[in-house]
């Protein structure tokens, strides 16, 4: 499953970068995240719970490993999520491109989805992934605005 797009963010790459590395901020970009800690310099671990429509009991243990880190412009992620409802695994690339006073985030992810949610939720996977991405980016945007400008998160 490919998820890709662009999203404007309120700050220059240098400013956004540090915030993106903060697990508390990153957690906002993943809706339903109950816990996210920075286990090592290039590794995050946590727990994420999805709740969309009929699917309310899909909890995943997440491990995100950062690679190809080129501050403050780009990094890649190895994503590994496992749970009773299935798993997701893949890579994502994030690039911050300066634009005016802010940045544009270019993201692309190639994710494998497996297990129960893939087997019985096929009808919704496309919509759900788009929704989670959109929710995540909107939440990230709000959090960034809050941290940078004092606007409510």
């Amino acid at each position: 499953m490919i998820v890709e797009g662009t999203y404007p963010l309120p700050g220059t790459p240098v400013v956004i970068w540090d915030l993106l590395m903060d697990p508390e901020v990153l957690a906002k970009a993943m809706p339903g995240t109950k816990l996210l800690v920075r286990a090592a310099a290039d590794r995050y671990e946590g727990v994420m719970r999805i709740g969309i429509g009929p699917i309310t009991a899909a909890e995943f243990e997440l491990v995100i490993a950062l690679t190809d880190v080129l501050p403050p412009y780009s990094y890649a992620m190895q994503i590994d999520g496992k749970g009773r409802a299935g798993f997701t695994r893949g890579t994502a690339k994030v690039e911050l491109v300066p634009e005016g006073a802010g940045s544009v985030m270019h993201y692309s992810a190639d994710l494998q989805v497996g297990g129960k949610i893939a087997a019985v939720g096929q009808r919704l996977l496309d919509s759900v992934s788009k929704l989670l991405t959109r929710q995540g980016l909107e939440a990230l945007n709000r959090e960034l605005n809050h941290r940078l400008g004092g606007a409510p998160a």
Binding site: Q112, V113, G114, A118, A119, V120, Q122
Partner: peptide
């Protein structure tokens, strides 16, 4: 039987 390239069956129910 709709298997993806990772061997995941995408329609393991009579819905799909």
């Amino acid at each position: 039987l709709s298997f993806d390239e990772n061997g995941q069956l995408r329609n393991a129910s009579f819905m799909d």
